[in-house]
Amino acid sequence: MTSTLIRVALLVSAALFAIGVTGVLLRRNAIVVFLCVELMLNAVNLSLVAFSRLLGIDGQIIVFFVMAVAAAEAAVGLAIIIAVFRHYEDVDVDRFDLLKW
């Protein structure tokens, strides 16, 4: 039974990740792109938890760190979005090419 759960969890994780990637490719709103990145992170978290079910507690600890990094990333990323918005009055990622070269 556990084996089935883990398989399903991994499949869901893969699907979630694919959806996240599609979102990043599809959307131009920076905040939505960000949400999709969060989606990808959570997909990874799910697979880590699933594997930890098999291999011990370390997987869960890594999820813990991923969450911390996600929090930091969200804080900085949103601050950047605010700063850019002030400048362009827009959050369209296709217009953000100021770091090009």
Partner: peptide, 17 residues
């Protein structure tokens, strides 16, 4: 290499994928 640096996020993600 620099020609790949278009500055467009979508292009980057595409290449990444």
């Amino acid at each position: 290499g620099s020609q790949l640096q278009s500055g467009r996020l979508g292009a980057y993600v595409l290449l990444f994928m």
